[in-house]
Amino acid sequence: MKNIAVIGSGGLGREVLGIIQSINRKENSWNFIGFYDDNLSNDLINGFPILGKIEELNQINEELYVVIAIGNPKIKELIKNKIFNSQIKFPTLIHPSVEIYSEENVVLGKGVVIAANSVLTVNIEISDFVYINTAVVIAHDTKIGKYSMIMPTVSISAGGEIGEKVYIGNGTKIDYAIQIDDNAVIKAGSILTS
């Protein structure tokens, strides 16, 4: 088993822990060792410790897989840019319930997390460090840029192009071939149509 830790011990970090535990119930792949968080606490988080501050990851001298569980795309990028240790690896995590129609032509970058009950069809490109939350549907020929955060029950129709560091709120519906610029924030429940 590979050692894995999560940056961020808040709600999203605990959800990532849940995804890791779900993966392990199906195939025992990960040894979860704890959280890294600049808000140090002696309390256990869902039974696991906070191991140290984020900068301490640069002192690790053995291979460690790390997931950045931060919802704000700009903060997530800042955190990633502070980690320069070659021993730190950023895995792609996919909840066992996720449906990917055609793994041969769905491209996932490093550090991508896809939560439960999401569906990705075909010819999709998801760039590095994108978080796709629960029950998201992404249709064919969609592209999503680095560090973007896609919240629960978002639906992205065919040909959507989502820029980098985009935050898309709960339940948003994006119609055919919509383009969203970098750094955009889309409020929950929005409907975007051409």
Results as ranks from 00 to 15, higher is better:
residue 135 A to C: 07
residue 116 A to P: 07
residue 103 E to M: 14
residue 99 E to T: 09
residue 91 P to L: 03
residue 87 Q to L: 13
residue 122 V to A: 05
residue 111 G to T: 08
residue 122 V to I: 04
residue 126 I to N: 09
residue 130 V to Q: 05
residue 105 N to S: 05
residue 92 T to W: 01
residue 149 M to Y: 12
residue 142 T to W: 06
residue 83 I to F: 12
residue 109 G to A: 00
residue 101 Y to A: 08
residue 102 S to Y: 10
residue 118 S to T: 15
residue 140 H to I: 01
residue 131 Y to H: 14
residue 88 I to W: 14
residue 89 K to W: 13
residue 131 Y to I: 15
residue 148 S to G: 04
residue 102 S to H: 11
residue 91 P to A: 01
residue 94 I to L: 06
residue 119 V to L: 03
residue 89 K to L: 11
residue 142 T to V: 12
residue 152 P to M: 12
residue 85 N to T: 11
residue 124 I to H: 06
residue 86 S to G: 07
residue 139 A to K: 14
residue 119 V to N: 03
residue 145 G to Q: 11
residue 138 I to Y: 08
residue 102 S to V: 11
residue 95 H to G: 03
residue 98 V to M: 03
residue 94 I to E: 01
residue 89 K to E: 04
residue 111 G to N: 07
residue 128 D to T: 04
residue 103 E to D: 11
residue 139 A to E: 15
residue 141 D to S: 02
residue 103 E to K: 15
residue 127 S to L: 13
residue 100 I to E: 10
residue 132 I to R: 07
residue 134 T to L: 12
residue 101 Y to F: 13
residue 84 F to I: 15
residue 138 I to N: 00
residue 145 G to K: 12
residue 101 Y to S: 07
residue 142 T to C: 11
residue 151 M to F: 15
residue 132 I to H: 07
residue 124 I to S: 06
residue 101 Y to Q: 03
residue 106 V to M: 04
residue 117 N to W: 09
residue 105 N to T: 04
residue 142 T to Q: 05
residue 143 K to F: 05
residue 140 H to V: 03
residue 108 L to Q: 05
residue 134 T to G: 10
residue 138 I to C: 01
residue 126 I to Q: 05
residue 151 M to D: 11
residue 117 N to G: 07
residue 92 T to K: 01
residue 148 S to D: 04
residue 106 V to Y: 07
residue 148 S to R: 09
residue 119 V to H: 12
residue 122 V to T: 12
residue 97 S to V: 03
residue 139 A to I: 02
residue 129 F to Q: 05
residue 139 A to T: 11
residue 144 I to A: 02
residue 151 M to K: 11
residue 91 P to G: 02
residue 98 V to E: 05
residue 115 A to T: 11
residue 139 A to Q: 10
residue 138 I to K: 08
residue 136 V to A: 09
residue 140 H to P: 00
residue 137 V to D: 01
residue 111 G to V: 05
residue 121 T to R: 00
residue 96 P to R: 08
residue 91 P to C: 03
residue 135 A to M: 12
residue 139 A to Y: 11
residue 115 A to G: 13
residue 127 S to A: 13
residue 143 K to P: 01
residue 94 I to N: 12
residue 130 V to N: 01
residue 143 K to T: 14
residue 107 V to K: 14
residue 95 H to P: 10
residue 144 I to D: 00
residue 104 E to D: 13
residue 127 S to Y: 12
residue 153 T to E: 13
residue 123 N to C: 00
residue 119 V to I: 10
residue 132 I to S: 08
residue 113 V to N: 13
residue 146 K to V: 12
residue 93 L to K: 10
residue 141 D to C: 06
residue 119 V to C: 01
residue 100 I to A: 02
residue 151 M to L: 14
residue 131 Y to W: 12
residue 115 A to I: 09
residue 85 N to R: 01
residue 96 P to V: 02
residue 132 I to F: 10
residue 141 D to M: 02
residue 151 M to H: 12
residue 146 K to A: 15
residue 103 E to L: 15
residue 152 P to E: 00
residue 144 I to M: 09
residue 143 K to G: 00
residue 131 Y to T: 15
residue 145 G to M: 09
residue 108 L to P: 07
residue 136 V to Q: 15
residue 121 T to Y: 06
residue 91 P to N: 02
residue 115 A to Q: 15
residue 81 N to S: 05
residue 128 D to I: 04
residue 101 Y to P: 00
residue 88 I to R: 10
residue 99 E to M: 06
residue 106 V to H: 07
residue 123 N to V: 08
residue 109 G to R: 08
residue 128 D to H: 03
residue 113 V to C: 13
residue 128 D to L: 05
residue 137 V to Y: 07
